[in-house]
Write a protein that binds this DNA or RNA. Sequence first.
DNA 1: GTATTTGCAAAAGCTTTGCTGCAAC
DNA 2: GTTGCAGCAAAGCTTTTGCAAATAC
Lengths: 163, 163
Amino acid sequence: MKAKLGRCSLLQALSSKGFRLTSQRRALIETIQEADDHLDAASLLRAARQRKADINRATVYRTLELLKRLGLINELDLMHLEGEKHYYEARARRDHLHLACYKCGAIMEYTTRTLERLKDEIARHNQFQVGVIRLEVGGWCKHCRPRSGTIRGSSMAPGCGLH
Amino acid sequence: MKAKLGRCSLLQALSSKGFRLTSQRRALIETIQEADDHLDAASLLRAARQRKADINRATVYRTLELLKRLGLINELDLMHLEGEKHYYEARARRDHLHLACYKCGAIMEYTTRTLERLKDEIARHNQFQVGVIRLEVGGWCKHCRPRSGTIRGSSMAPGCGLH
DNA sequence: GTATTTGCAAAAGCTTTGCTGCAAC
DNA sequence: GTTGCAGCAAAGCTTTTGCAAATAC
């Protein structure tokens, strides 16, 4: 179960910026905020329809675009483990990174101060104002590691054909 | 001009693993290695055709898939600044991150020890064998920052409609 | 000579768009 | 009553696939 704390209140944020709160948007936002997993557009539509039956695919995409533009949700690729869909999550108070296992497909989240330090460093060294930071790691989780023991420091994918 | 040093020799790596060196693959690989920018599949095809006229789109995608699987190139999304295409770069000796400016579209690379430290930390704390790490940052470059001075530590995108 | 790889063309998958009518404020 | 937003259906774009012919080794 995904933690529900530390989330922005999307509904509140939307209306305070003058956007209409349609019943469709409510259903979509509630679905996103209460989701256990990262949802792609199709899954979100399916889940949101249990709250409000008549939601259209176009509305899903338009709402996601809006929330993304407002910085209220994050868009993830999750290393394209399965196709080119995008995944979404309500933006948490702290940035975190996503680990994707090439073998079993598990997605893990990891929060660390180092990421915040890195963000500050990026801003300072490049005079760059950071809006969104997306850090995704592909590899092998502890259950799927090719062999136990060594974790290589190298950046090269170990061997071929392993994905 | 992008630095040409610190690259893997893709041709050599391919043949040493027993893959055939077709003229199409040669043309594609040479194009990738000498590219000044990050190339998407269509641009790569266009550029490679100047070396070898008859290359097909399917071959491009199949070759990219192969090189990616072998860990010889990185696949980037560059924060989806323009559509959903993917971008590719020959894998460098050191990992680096990509900064994408929402306003002018500039892509900058930044290499830092902190990224390597972060990678080690990820591996240690999650017992995760890192294959590929992809870190992309969306924001505003020094020429496009909304206002000078403050660089906010917050992760929220500043204001709405700015992308 | 044989197995791998290519070209071709069609399809698949996800996302976007134009337009009409509905609904939030 | 306005104006923004949703629904519908069609199109758009990138990427993938099946199969026969070509090519690297």
